[in-house]
Design a protein around this nucleic acid. Structure first.
Ligand SMILES: [Mn+2]
Ligand SMILES: [Mn+2]
Ligand SMILES: [Mn+2]
Ligand SMILES: [Mn+2]
Lengths: 219, 219
DNA sequence: TTATATTTTTAGCCTTGTCTAAAAAAATTA
DNA sequence: TAATTTTTTTAGACAAGGCTAAAAATATAA
């Protein structure tokens, strides 16, 4: 179907489109993929020929319907495999991303149908990210970034924006995982840092931490 | 570690060494991999540089210790994944080979340790082939090819030499699977065909079928 | 032993995906 | 508006892994 490189480009552009609005720039793609802009230009020209995205020189790109579908399919596979690794093979949530980066490229429709069933058709991966359905549709949930929560409000952790091992291990140390209740006791407007309560512990977190945690507030 | 192409060459040569004695020829490798002899020459020269096999121009190749270890590792992964697909995802034994051809190249030591444990450290794959241990050691079992069994002898099917979907589907139709008892009621020396009994059914099989079935005789 | 056939290697080309260096376009600053 | 900086594209090169055609070595037949 599509090569490993093509799938990775489509996935990266899909993530960028969900994060920023409008056309995605060559440089943004290059940065997110840790590659050179000239390589990106080459590849997006090929993907444009295949109608997976629209491209006008110097104007950036935008995924077409089929481009989005391919990207969502890869992300679906990635997240299902992450669930498998955590739920069935007892991996820790900070260990699964690299392996899923490989597994997401295995080509077999039937495999994913059966893996999904075996896992009980999960809706979210171990980092709280939604798993696209077989048609590539991602259901959006209302979640807020912790840094946007006001003082004296509370929320439940429903996901992480970053999922690097370093960040996830920090959260482990602080006993924060998906489902953890977080109370915002104080908020410093100068640097965006917070005092929060998790369980019976109260501690300080930086803005960088707060902007990478998703929470749901109940109302 | 090694590229997909390198792993596939090493695996093919490993299988050829187990089937034939002595050096393996360029043409034999090309045929088994469905590629051209000139491509094989290119690759074996690279693998010789990496000390994965020994090579003298025009004289064929032989895997070194480390070449064998890499190959056995790939085969271990292939067969463990086949067990996973059949035991956990309920695939049929004729559907798993192609998917395992992809999964065998996933690079993660820890993944295989955990997959093996999850599957209960199986000794054989769904086709009756032994799974190399983590050191690459393949335990040999005494098994015979059905075509070598004499008239009026019986055996238990313990494996298949071919594992193409076509052959496996033929066996299904005849209700032959791993563990099935087979009685040799008659044997035609002219063409090697046989009359066998499986359960309460008696039927004819050609030499081509008989030489692709492994059985164990009890004595 | 010489001639022929087969096997293996080499030489040269192609595609994919990457890079660096230079050119071109767009955006920003003066 | 003109000059400068940034972004993007193009040109040309390279490595991996494949191919075809031709040359070289080995094996077989006469
Ligand atoms: Mn991930
Ligand atoms: Mn994830
Ligand atoms: Mn197989
Ligand atoms: Mn098998």
């Amino acid at each position: 179907m599509f090569t490993l490189a093509e799938e990775n480009y489509l996935k990266a552009i899909f993530h960028l489109e969900n994060e920023f609005q409008g056309e995605i720039s060559t440089n943004a793609i290059a940065e997110s993929m840790e590659t050179k802009p000239s390589s990106v230009t080459d590849m997006i020209q090929k993907l444009a020929e295949k109608k997976l995205l629209t491209y006008k020189r110097y104007k950036g790109v935008q995924l077409t319907g089929s481009g989005k579908k391919v990207a969502a399919g890869v992300i679906r596979k990635h997240r299902l495999w992450e669930v498998f690794l955590v739920e069935k093979l007892s991996f820790h949530w900070d260990e699964v991303h690299e392996i899923a980066e490989q597994l997401e490229h295995i080509q077999s429709e039937e495999l994913i149908i059966r893996l999904d069933k075996f896992l009980g058709s999960p809706d979210f991966d171990p980092h709280g990210d939604p798993i696209p359905d077989k048609h590539g549709v991602l259901k959006r949930t209302e979640k807020k970034i912790l840094s946007e929560i006001d003082k004296n409000q509370k929320g439940v952790c429903v996901g992480v924006k970053e999922s690097s091992p370093e960040f996830l291990q920090y959260l482990d140390k602080k006993k924060i995982s998906i489902g953890t209740k977080i109370y915002v006791l104080g908020k410093e407007f100068f640097d965006g840092s917070m005092i929060i309560q998790v369980g019976s512990e109260q501690f300080f977190i930086s803005h960088k931490i707060a902007e990478n945690l998703y929470v749901q507030t109940q109302e």
